[in-house]
Design a protein around this nucleic acid. Sequence first.
RNA 1: GGAUCGAUGUUAUAG
Length: 235
Amino acid sequence: LLVGSTSSDVYARGGLLTEANEVSNSLPVRDMISWTALMTGYAEHDHGNETLKCVEQLQLEGIHLNAATFVCTLKACGSTGAIAKGREMHGELIRMGLESDHLVSSSLVHMYAKCGSLREAQDVFDKLSAKDEVSWNALIAAYAQVGESESVFWMYERMLGEGKKPDLVTFVSVLTACSHAGLVDKGQLCFEALSSDCVSGPTLEHYTCMIDLLGRSGQVDKAVAMVMKMPIHPS
RNA sequence: GGAUCGAUGUUAUAG
């Protein structure tokens, strides 16, 4: 079981989903870890519908999902836009007392955001008893992706106001928002802030945001200079 | 005291 389940996981991670499924099918029993490995593989390689089929099969067999299966199911709902199923899962996981699990709750925020319901994403977020970095980032990133830059800045300020430290992922979203809003100066200030506050930054993503911001605002010369000077391999 | 112990969360760039 251990060898089979692990090799299914390896196939699934690499996107060899047919192989992953075959190996998983050949197992004497499929336990929850094997299910999750397969379902996560589907969810992360654009086969969220297959993840959801697994969920239905589990439900038919009367097997309850656990935190890990909820997480990959919510991801699949998000990537396929299956908001009705997502809401159903939301109700289910509350019944199972899993709403306070950090991985589950940030996945919920992410799911609603990916399904285009920023209202519900914000609502879930606001009601979280413990808001960790990832749930903040999931919501802020969602606003950045749809171009709601004002909401990004508002949430960012709120984060600072609550004494939370923005991390490298937060700054990617804030810089993205600056880029979409054409706020070069604000972007430069952020870039400097993260350069001094975050030990392991800036990353390639931050450079990409800054170069994008400079380029879009017409400062192509500065953008080029930044590409030449950056200490990371430009992609 | 530390590491490890089969599965799960958030991020960028033109077309």
